[in-house]
Design a protein around this nucleic acid. Structure first.
Lengths: 100, 100
DNA sequence: ATTTTATATGAAATCTTTTTCATATGACAA
DNA sequence: TTGTCATATGAAAAAGATTTCATATAAAAT
């Protein structure tokens, strides 16, 4: 069944580190060091998270010399972000003020 | 910020119990007992999970006598399911065969 | 009033994911 | 062929989420 793939897929959006990596990449592909700087996190933390994002095909990688350039699977990620933003806008006027 | 709302939102899709509740409700609204039977889980487990789904406005509730009838926020949930299915179909031909 | 049915809730226990830290690998340059 | 830069990885520790179990609440029926 696909339930497990679904779960791991959504996990990648349900974590602050992974989500901020996605956000960082909306402006274009970046290598690991750049991502690390942009979101201000540890390199190994970023790498572990990138791995999962890649495994679920949410990100693509290509090698350039000793660098690895990560880019969004924008076909999936952009509509997803659009969807959640719309949801929050329409249904969560005061979600942030509450503890969830 | 909205990062926390985003996280909790996606959490609701990234868990087998919650996801199967959502699936159970795609065919129409149900009360707790019916959901419990349909997905074959403990009542309190179901209630705990329903609570989070409701808090994020992924589900709506209405009271009918002593029953509580839960229904999908289909405006959000249906497109979300469509999106993930498309993603898996297009990008995860062999995701299930691998450990993620 | 008491019982029954439907559902919710709190807290501890369990399970899963994420982070951290130390180290490995791999490409390129000197 | 050694050093350095970029990134990955394994395993233990920490953090977080989920489940469980016992119990509470609340509406309706008796």
């Amino acid at each position: 069944m696909t339930t497990k793939s679904y779960n791991s897929f959504f996990m990648n959006f349900a974590n602050p580190t992974k989500f901020s990596i996605l956000m960082a990449l909306t402006e274009g592909p970046l290598n690991v060091t750049r991502i690390t700087k942009k979101i201000n996190e540890e390199q190994s933390k970023v790498s572990h998270n990138l791995k999962k994002l890649e495994q679920c095909h949410i990100l693509n990688v290509k090698q350039r010399g000793k660098q690895r350039i990560y880019s969004l699977n924008s076909q999936t990620v952009i509509p997803m972000i659009r969807l959640i933003k719309k949801h929050v806008k329409n249904h969560c006027k005061e979600c942030d003020k509450r503890e969830i």
